[in-house]
Simulated assay, not measured.
Amino acid sequence: MDSMRGQGGIQMLLTAEQEAQQIVYAARNVKTTRLRQAKEEAEMEVTNYRSHLEAEYKQKLSETSGSSDSTEKRLEIETEQKIQHLKKAASQVSPDVIAMLTKYITTIKT
């Protein structure tokens, strides 16, 4: 009788282990999907922002075409200042964004 009970216990443990593996596998799939989605959204946002800046630059460039070299230098300086400002802002926000994404991705709702 005890050997039958032991066999049933082993079978239950094997079943529980398989269920746990399925849960872990599903959680990994969800995490991978979230990471891909976040990466795609970030790339799309960067692309949109870059195209916006390029369009803005081209517009200013067309408005000032035929102007003197000083206008061109002024635009280059303004552009460089904006780039530096954006880099500074991005570096300040980056740790918070990374922490938020890490928390969101590693938190599994059950």
Score class of each variant (00 low, 15 high):
H85G: 10
R28L: 06
P95D: 02
E63H: 03
T79E: 14
H85I: 09
K31A: 12
S70F: 12
V97S: 00
E45V: 10
Y57L: 15
I98R: 09
A99T: 08
T47A: 15
A89K: 08
K60G: 10
E63Q: 10
E72Q: 13
L101E: 03
E40Q: 15
E80L: 06
S51P: 02
R34G: 06
A55F: 11
I108S: 02
T15R: 08
E56C: 11
K73M: 02
A16T: 02
V93C: 08
R28W: 11
G8Y: 15
T102Q: 07
S91M: 08
V30G: 00
Q11N: 08
S67N: 04
L14M: 09
T107D: 00
Q81W: 06
K73V: 01
E17C: 07
R74Q: 12
L75Y: 04
I108M: 04
A27R: 03
T106R: 12
I108C: 04
S94T: 13
S62G: 01
S94R: 15
A38E: 03
Y104H: 08
E17P: 02
S51Q: 15
E72F: 13
T15F: 08
L61R: 05
K58P: 05
I83Q: 13
I10R: 14
D96K: 14
V30S: 01
I23C: 00
R36C: 05
G66F: 02
A90T: 00
E40M: 14
R34N: 09
L101T: 05
A42R: 06
S94L: 15
E63M: 04
E41H: 06
E54A: 13
A38Q: 05
T106M: 10
P95H: 05
V46C: 00
E54T: 11
T33E: 09
L14I: 06
T102L: 13
E76M: 06
E43F: 05
S94A: 15
G6A: 15
A27S: 01
D2S: 09
Q7S: 02
Y104S: 09
K39Q: 13
I83Y: 13
R5L: 11
G66I: 00
T47F: 14
I108V: 04
E41Q: 11
